[in-house]
């Protein structure tokens, strides 16, 4: 096909861009294999010449349960965020309630509160409600990272949905809820996936909430697993980096799959047009 041949240069360029972007990630992988005595070698080794698996041995032995918890927390956060944000954004964008402007404004400010302060506030609330050090508690806390973002993004996208589409649904006799469910949501599939991605990624990489609200917990996310390698006087950098590498593998796989789905959605939509 002519089209594919013409896009080869794009693939090439894309690979170059990606390689450039991911260089720090490569460097992290490089460090994860490096022996303690080579870590600050000047000039540095470009490849793990005297590689060690010490870091990975430690990680694979200890980090399994942490990964599982992170996965649960990440997916839980996505679900909670969507449930709260999508209907809210729909009503903001299409039903235009009184005080809608104020609400988006508050959402914006909400994101400005420093994480540490949020965490301190949650600590007090969680302690009295008994959800301190629990996974559901952490999910709720992590969702606060994503909900304001999600509402704003959904609103921006949903306000772009053509009014005729909604009207058509209304003419068919659908109420606000039905319209939302069978018209708005399917049309906003792309933004749903975008929001889910971010909610997942934020929950996955959250450190502040986890360390304040779940450090005494029985089930902790991977970001706290790193503490195994941070002593009071010393840090085991190869193991810290190895944890990050191991932690990013399942998440990367998930991302690639999710992205394929976005692409599929787009083409499907195009065919329908």
């Amino acid at each position: 096909m002519r089209a594919t041949r013409r896009t080869w240069w794009r693939t090439g360029l894309g690979v170059v861009f990606t390689a450039f972007m991911l260089f720090p990630v490569y460097w992290m992988i490089n460090v994860s294999f490096t022996r303690d005595q080579d870590m600050r070698k000047s000039p540095p080794y470009w490849f793990p010449v005297h590689g060690t698996l010490e870091g990975y041995r430690a990680v694979l032995e200890q980090q399994g349960p942490y990964l599982a918890t992170s996965l649960v927390v990440g997916l839980g956060t996505v679900a909670l965020t969507l449930v709260i944000a999508a209907p809210a954004a729909y009503s903001l964008a299409k039903l235009r309630p009184r005080g809608g402007g104020v609400l988006s404004f508050v959402l914006l400010i909400a994101q400005m509160i420093p994480g540490v302060i949020m965490a301190m506030g949650f600590y007090a609330i969680y302690l009295s409600t008994g959800v301190l050090n629990t996974v559901p508690g952490l999910i709720v806390a992590d969702s606060t990272l994503a909900v304001p973002f999600a509402v704003l993004i959904f609103t921006a996208f949903m306000s772009g949905i053509p009014e005729e589409l909604m009207q058509a649904a209304r003419v068919d006799g659908a109420g606000a809820v039905r319209t939302f469910w069978s018209v708005v949501l399917p049309v906003s599939r792309n933004s749903v996936i975008t929001v889910s991605l971010f909610a997942f990624l934020w929950a996955w990489s959250d450190f502040v909430f986890a360390s304040t609200l779940d450090q005494g917990g029985g089930r902790q996310p991977i970001t706290l697993g790193i503490y195994h390698y941070i002593g009071n006087n010393n840090q085991q950098w190869n193991a810290i980096m190895a944890t990050a590498v191991v932690a990013s593998i399942p998440a990367t796989v998930l991302l690639v799959i999710a992205q394929r789905y976005v692409a599929a959605g787009v083409t499907a939509g195009a065919v329908k047009d």
Binding site: R10, T11, M21, F207, I226, S248, L255, V256, A258, Q259
Partner: peptide, 20 residues
């Protein structure tokens, strides 16, 4: 070719905890 995969890889920096 590979555009979706490369685009996904661009997100990898987000997966890393900021400390790392």
């Amino acid at each position: 070719r590979l555009s979706t995969t490369l685009r996904a890889l661009f997100l990898v920096p987000w997966l890393l905890p900021l400390i790392v």
